[in-house]
C-alpha cells in the first residue's frame, strides 16, 4: 500500500532524511523508533504534505500513485491520515462542523453524495460509542482548551470518522499519562483491520506495549538502520539507542 523508496528530504539545504526505504502492506502495523532529531517527525510531515520541506530525491507510492505530487487534501481523499504530534486549536469551529466538512469533502472527491446533518449525526454517534468518548466533544471548538490527552483522543476520533486506509501516528504518546495512553491505544486497536495499515512513530517503547507492532524500524540520522519484529523494541528499551550506535560503528570498522 505504501512504498517509500530512497527518500531524501530536508529543510533549507539541511538534509534530514537521507535515503528512507520502507514498505507498509495492508493490515500491517509498523513502528518507527528513533532518538530526537533522527527525522521521525519530518517523515510524518513529508508524508502528510506539510509545507516547508524540500524533497531532494526519492519516491513515495501510495497504492501505486505518486503521493508527493498530491496536495494535503488529496492525500486525505486517497485515504492517508496523520494524527498530529501537536493538534491545532481552532476556536470558533465546532468539532462536528469540522468533521462533517472533512467527511463530505472526501465523499465529494470520490464522487459520492454528501451526508446531510441527520445522516452524519447517526454515523458519528456510532463512532463516539466505539471509542467510548464524551458526547460534548462534538459541540466543542476543535481542540480549544483541550488537555493533552483530550487532544490526542480527538485525533483518534477523527481517524475513526474519516476511515483512512493508512494511518500515520506522529508521537501520539508524547505528553500523555499512562491512562490517557491506554485510552488512545485502545482507540487505535479498535481501528486495526486487514484493510488498514499503520505507521506508528514514537520515541519510547512504552506505546508499543499497547499497540503491538508487526515490524519495528530504527531511524537514526535520517536512515533506517535496523529493522526487526516487536522484540527489537524491547531490546531498545533495555539497552537504549547507544547500543545501536555502537553496533553501527563496529560494522563500519569491521
Amino acid at each position: 500500500m505504501l512504498q517509500i523508496k530512497q527518500l531524501h528530504a530536508g529543510v533549507e539545504d539541511k538534509p534530514i532524511l537521507k535515503g528512507i526505504d520502507l514498505t507498509v502492506r495492508s493490515g500491517e502495523v509498523h513502528a518507527i523508533m528513533g532518538p530526537n532529531g533522527s527525522g521521525k517527525s519530518t517523515l510524518a510531515n513529508v508524508l502528510a504534505g506539510r509545507d516547508g520541506y524540500d524533497i531532494t530525491s526519492g519516491q513515495v507510492l501510495f497504492d501505486g500513485e505518486e503521493l508527493l505530487e498530491l496536495d494535503p487534501e488529496e492525500r486525505a481523499h486517497q485515504g492517508l491520515f496523520m494524527a498530529f504530534q501537536y493538534p491545532v486549536e481552532i476556536p470558533g469551529v465546532s468539532n462536528s462542523y469540522f468533521l462533517r466538512a472533512a467527511v463530505n469533502a472526501k465523499r465529494q472527491a470520490r464522487g459520492e453524495s454528501e451526508m446531510d446533518a441527520l445522516e452524519f449525526m447517526t454515523f458519528i454517534k456510532e463512532k463516539i460509542k466505539l471509542l467510548h468518548l464524551e458526547g460534548d466533544l462534538l459541540t466543542r471548538s476543535v481542540n480549544e482548551g483541550f488537555s493533552g490527552g483530550e487532544k490526542k483522543r480527538n485525533e483518534i476520533f477523527q481517524m475513526a470518522v474519516l476511515e483512512p486506509r493508512l494511518c500515520v501516528l506522529d508521537e501520539t504518546d508524547s505528553g500523555l499519562d499512562i491512562d490517557a495512553l491506554k485510552t488512545v491505544a485502545d482507540g487505535v486497536n479498535a481501528l486495526r483491520s486487514p484493510e488498514r495499515g499503520f505507521l506508528v512513530i514514537t520515541h519510547y517503547q512504552r506505546l508499543l506495549n499497547y499497540i503491538v507492532p508487526d515490524f519495528v524500524h530504527i531511524l537514526m540520522d535520517g536512515r533506517i538502520v535496523k529493522s526487526g519484529g516487536k522484540e527489537l523494541a524491547h531490546e531498545l528499551e533495555a539497552k537504549g539507542y547507544g547500543w545501536i550506535e555502537e553496533e553501527l560503528a563496529a560494522g563500519a570498522r569491521g
Binding site: A48, G49, R50, D51, D71, P72, E73, R75, A76, H77, F81, M82, F84, P87, V88, I90, F98, A101, A102, A105, K106, A109, Q158, L162
Partner: peptide
C-alpha cells in the same frame, strides 16, 4: 494545514 490534512480543500 490541519484542515487540509483532513481533506478540506484550501
Amino acid at each position: 494545514f490541519y484542515l487540509r490534512s483532513r481533506g478540506i480543500d484550501e
